[in-house]
Design a binder for these strands. Structure first.
Lengths: 205, 205
DNA sequence: CAGCATACCGAACGATCGCTCGAAGTTCGA
DNA sequence: TCGAACTTCGAGCGATCGTTCGGTATGCTG
């Protein structure tokens, strides 16, 4: 995996990183629309306005670009999730907060999310994607822990917690495919909708 | 879209079609694992044991192959769904039957399903995929109709039927990514789990 | 058995792929 | 203000892409 060449002079570092992120965001949009493999570097030069050489100055390689997209998606989400479960609150409250943060994140990084889901087969198979897989796993674990805690303290009672978690992951991940900026429901409303769905289905007797 | 060259002699037609379907099934497996765009025709010649010429004898083109995979997935599923809602039964029974048929279909055509989900961006954008989009839409409409009927006759009461449908589509589609042939839960158990989730969440007051 | 439809091969085609690199232009720090 | 660091260009690299096609072998059919 080739690396880009960031400037050593600190004064230029900020400008470099801003432009780099701009390139990543543009690439994410194009990847989401056309698919990662189906997008050529030529497509990206057109979308970014940079020529081939200029593009590689910022990204290192096409795969590195994909990695960056995944990292920009998962890292801040995981950090938010950890912050939420760090403070004391009932499991149901944690679940609602997690879902709201998650949906807001998806809304703000819809293209990133679509690419991440679309390239599942790359992420799942290749050894160099182990860290990405680990981040995703860690996030899912946080959700499972919250559901487990709800079961343990008697406020939730799922027929099958494992299946419930998988259902939740499915519905939320799927959201990226239909979510529109000016849709009928806001990300928070969607999050609450999913949360109520789970809490009603798992209402303690 | 190039067309393959099926034999006119009826005696050979059966053999041709059997082998053709074998090729499609193999291709679906490889596509699901590596991705459609990332799979080269060379990969397919190795997976099928056919040389390039022999392969094209059966498939016409790579895109045609993708189309066949989608059609093999959607057409029989849609037919089953129509048969289910054709007979008289309570909405909840229809829902359960639909989910069972759907999950069984996913289990039997896991690779097809993964490819279909993975290549969403192709299917969504290109005009020649209109019929495929229409089939998917028709299936979703059948599901929505069942939920709407349940609301109308008072046996179901969803906070937001539209969101519930989207959640359902999400969780079921996502199932293909984690379903294992010898998993803890059978397709029917998963279907029932999802069905109970919805019915509990949408239990009439 | 004659003869054509079918099955399959594999070299080769033009196009396009991701990426490199030397050079030119620009900006920063001393 | 001068040289080094940085940014960007774009022609062009070797590799690989999906596909074609003339060929041969193997049936089926009359």
């Amino acid at each position: 995996m080739a690396t880009a060449t960031p400037p050593t002079r600190p004064a230029l570092r900020a400008r470099y990183e801003r432009k780099q992120q701009e390139v990543v965001a543009t690439a994410a949009r194009v990847f989401a629309e056309r698919g990662y493999q189906a997008t050529s570097m030529q497509d990206l030069t057109e979308a970014t306005g940079l020529a081939a050489g200029g593009l590689y100055h910022y990204i290192g390689s096409k795969e590195r670009l994909l990695f960056r997209i995944c990292d920009e998606l998962l890292e801040p989400l995981l950090e938010q999730a950890r912050a939420i479960v760090a403070h004391d609150a009932p499991a149901a409250d944690h679940l609602r907060e997690l879902l709201r943060a998650w949906l807001a994140h998806i809304a703000a990084h819809r293209a990133h999310m679509l690419v991440f889901a679309q390239e599942r087969h790359v992420i799942e198979r290749e050894p160099q994607w182990r860290d990405v897989r680990r981040q995703r796993k860690a996030f899912e674990q946080i959700l499972d822990d919250v559901l487990a805690r709800g079961e343990r303290d008697g406020t939730m009672a799922f027929a099958d917690r494992g299946l419930t978690l998988l259902a939740l992951l499915g519905m939320v991940n799927h959201t990226a495919t239909w979510l529109k900026p000016r849709g009928r429901l806001s990300p928070a409303q969607i999050a609450d909708g999913y949360c109520d769905l789970l809490l009603k289905a798992g209402a303690a007797a």
